[in-house]
Simulated scan of single mutants.
Amino acid sequence: MSEPSPSQDQPLGLTVHSLPTPSEAGAQNARSTRRGRWTMLALALICATPVIASYFSYYVVRPEGRRNFGELIDPQRLVPTVTATNVAGQPVDLTTLKGQWLLVSVSGGACDSACQQHLYMQRQLRESLGREKDRLDWVWLVTDDVPLTPELRPVADVATVLRVPPAELAKWLVPAAGHQASEHLYVVDPMGHWMMRFPANMDMGGAAKAKRDLERLLRASVSWDNAGR
């Protein structure tokens, strides 16, 4: 009977592998846990980077003063807790304007030619933003009880028109020295902070510069501000 060759299978030949000690196993688990945490942290930072950059751009760097057409307001003023009324006479909390960029004009209900020019300019500025226009609301704040003329009532179909007590409004939106509130257009950020004032009695040439300001603001906030409230 021939001897089995060394290359043949040895069914009873078992390989014994050493098992890690409890302390070694604990160390391996700890290393795996730390590695997993660092991986999750890295992924979170990668995802958050665009948002952090946009916040930094808007709140820290912000549009440079020398490049702005509009005047930056410092300190910014938060929308007051005031009860306004809409064109139907229903009460509206002014703080409900939060959640959207606002382009605001102020005047009495009679709305003279300068007021009408502002309303037209607001509409044109918003439309000129193209696909970004839904991130900017057109707001007309009326400071008296004068009824809107039939020609102006259609504005309420496309803009937010609210009557606000002038004394309360003056605590929020303030004109430049020597001017009246109705001579400016105002920009309010989605948190409700009045943060920019365009020059008084702005013409259409100024409106083109105002558009560039608005575009920069919308770009700086693109990662954290969405259209609609």
Rank of each mutant, 00 (worst) to 15 (best):
R212L: 13
P75D: 05
L162I: 06
G99M: 01
Q124K: 11
R34P: 01
G228Y: 03
K171I: 00
R216N: 10
G36K: 12
G192M: 01
L94G: 01
R212H: 03
M204R: 13
V155W: 12
C115P: 00
Q76M: 08
A110F: 13
L14G: 13
P154G: 07
P147Y: 08
A207K: 14
W140P: 00
R34N: 12
Q8C: 11
E132N: 15
A181M: 09
G108C: 09
V142S: 02
G65E: 15
G13E: 08
A48E: 14
L102E: 02
A207S: 15
Q76A: 15
D112H: 10
T21D: 06
S5T: 04
T96R: 12
Y58T: 01
M196D: 00
A170T: 03
M202F: 02
Q76D: 00
M1C: 06
A110M: 14
M204V: 08
A177R: 13
A114V: 11
W138H: 06
R35K: 10
S32M: 11
R229H: 09
K98C: 10
V142Q: 11
R31I: 07
V82T: 15
S18K: 08
L185D: 07
L162K: 03
R131L: 14
G65S: 14
L19F: 02
S23N: 10
Q10P: 00
G70F: 06
R35Q: 10
E168I: 01
S105N: 14
G178V: 07
D203S: 14
E168N: 01
T49V: 06
R67G: 12
C111E: 11
S54Y: 05
R66K: 08
V188Q: 05
A227G: 15
G108L: 11
A181H: 04
D225G: 01
L94V: 05
D134V: 07
A220V: 00
S54R: 10
S18M: 03
K133N: 05
T33P: 00
A48K: 03
I52N: 04
R197Q: 10
